[in-house]
Design a binder for these strands. Structure first.
Lengths: 179, 179
DNA sequence: ACCTGAACACCGTTCAAGT
DNA sequence: ACCTGAACACCGTTCAAGT
């Protein structure tokens, strides 16, 4: 798994591209951010981006993967906390990417590569919830159903602007009924 | 409120445009359906559409409004049925518009006119759920929270492809816990 | 009032060429 | 291997002109 200099440079370059793209996607939205705009922010020619990614969609997936693995890194830090805390943490982690999440959902039908990422994202959320529920002694089958519900609630809270109180109420209600 | 011939013709024309646009939006997705494509299907020049709608987004809102009011018409037919039946009905009514719903969510930040429609849509769903819960004797405050949860579950089930069994399990679970 | 032909600025993407 | 200039087909939208 040792990487040579070339691969390291490639990774550094990709990180630059994806960080810039992520910022612009989150500020202005995916559609409103043109490849031209991204390349200008990077100081390269527009078609340079196509040496690193075969399409704008694949660049988005690159951005999403980085986002997700950054969050995965921080997962252990909330490992032992109550389910409610963990769900609040997920919302806090992804609420800046609200528009991006909705973009993902709107592209599920059209883009296989985005569909793949979306499945990984769901697995990520499910792993958190199922693991915590099982630790609480909930059976596997029931944990699966509750995880589905939890994910829908998380996505709902992520997709819509909402007050802190609304969020608390929803999470509290779910916590009460997931025992 | 009497309409003259001109207004009637305008409505007929708009219905034609919106029916065609709705079909193409649902078949190919919003982004993949160009104004050019819609105009060709209608046999008019592309810019003709701009006499009826100021933008593609407003055409989408026209399509969405028609979709919603068509469903509203059929609302009385499920008025007395159990909550679970009503929620299944909503899913069945909107699942062909799955991609369109996700498009709406992805455009919430950018388009005020779509944001307005989305609020109307939520009110529609909330009205159904709150009304039914109150009829079951649930208090107003609790009904509000349960309606939020119900809407998130509906949107979750609408946004993601899922099996009938999964849907049944989620709706059954919610029904059990909304008493 | 209703529709069109022609144009505008911009989009994602490709290709041949440069180092 | 990495980057660019120039072009391609297409996009949403505008405008002046026609009936």
């Amino acid at each position: 798994m040792a990487k040579n200099k070339r691969e390291i440079n490639l990774d550094v370059k990709k990180k630059e591209l994806e960080d810039t793209a992520a910022r612009l996607f989150m500020e202005d939205g995916y559609d409103a951010t043109s490849m031209n705009r991204i390349s200008r922010a990077l100081g390269v020619a527009p078609n340079t981006l196509y040496w690193y990614y075969p399409s704008k969609d694949e660049l988005l997936v690159g951005v999403l993967n980085r986002l997700l693995s950054d969050r995965l890194t921080q997962l252990p830090s909330i490992a032992g906390t109550p389910l409610k805390t963990q769900m609040a943490w997920v919302i806090q982690q992804f609420e800046q990417s609200r528009a991006l999440m909705n973009t993902v959902h709107s592209k599920l039908d059209q883009s296989p590569v985005i569909r793949d990422w979306h499945e990984r994202f769901h697995s990520f959320l499910e792993a958190i919830v199922v693991h915590t529920l099982k630790a609480k002694g909930v059976g596997a089958q029931r944990a699966g159903l509750l995880a589905t519900v939890a994910i829908f609630l998380l996505e709902g809270l992520l997709a819509h602007p909402h007050s802190q109180k609304q969020q608390d109420n929803v999470l509290e209600w779910f916590d009460q009924h997931s025992r």
